[in-house]
Amino acid sequence: MATAVTHEAHEAHDTHEHVHYTSTGLDNRKVAIWAFIGSECMLFASLISTYLIYKGRSRVGPLPHEIWTSPSGQIFQPILNIPVTSASTFVLLMSSLVMVLALAAVENRGKPGYVGTLLGNSKFWLAATALMGATFLGFQAYEFTSFVHEGLTIKTNLFGSSFFTLTGFHGAHVTAGVLWLLTLLAIDIKRGLTPKDAILVDICALYWHFVDVVWIAIFTLVYLIK
C-alpha cells in the first residue's frame, strides 16, 4: 500500500497548471502523506510491540544481548553488533540533514545564496540522500548475512523471527524511499525541479524523515535496551 499512495502523490506533477482549489489551502498530496504516516505509526507500533513482547522468550539462541550455550556445548556470543549499527544509524541520521537541504535547494531555486552554489544544487543533495540510504541498506545487508553466518536466521527462534521482520520492514521502507529519491533525481535531471515542484520533494522528504524516526525508535528499543 505504501507504493500506491506515495506514487499517487506524484500524479499531478504534469498537470500543475490547473491549480485546484482546496478548502484548507493545503496540497492534497501533503494531506494524504501525513495521513499515510499516521497509519504507518500503527504499523510499526504493531511490529515493535511484537518484538518487545517476545524479548527474552526465545528457547534457543543466538540471543541479542546474552551469551547462549547450546545443549551440545557450543557457545554463542551476543549477536547484536552495536558499533556497526551505530555507524549505520549515523548515516541514516545524517541523510535526514541532506534531505532537508535537497528540499531547501528546490524551494529556494533562483534566490540569492542558492544560485551556482552547492547549497542550491538539488541534484547533488537528492543523489547524496539516495546514496546514504543505499549505504544504510548496505550495512543492513552486511548485518543480516553475518547473523546468518553466526547461526541466526528468521527461522531460528522468536528473536530471529521478530528481529528480521521488524528490521526487514524498515529496510523495505528505506528501499522504497531510495527508489522515490532516484525518481525525483531523474525528474530533476530531465527537466529540472522548480519551486513549484517543491511539494514533490516535500512529501518525499516527509516520508524519508519518518523512516528515519522509526529507526531512531528501533535503534534504542532493539539494539540498546537490555
Binding site: T24, L26, K30, V31, I37, C41, S49, L52
Partner: peptide
C-alpha cells in the same frame, strides 16, 4: 499547518497507547 500536527500526533498517541497496553 496545525492540521498536520493533528494528523500525526493523533495516530501516534493511539499507537503508543496500544504498545503500552500490549506490554
Amino acid at each position: 499547518h496545525k492540521l498536520f500536527r493533528a494528523l500525526f500526533f493523533g495516530p501516534l498517541l493511539i499507537a503508543m497507547f496500544t504498545v503500552t497496553a500490549l506490554l
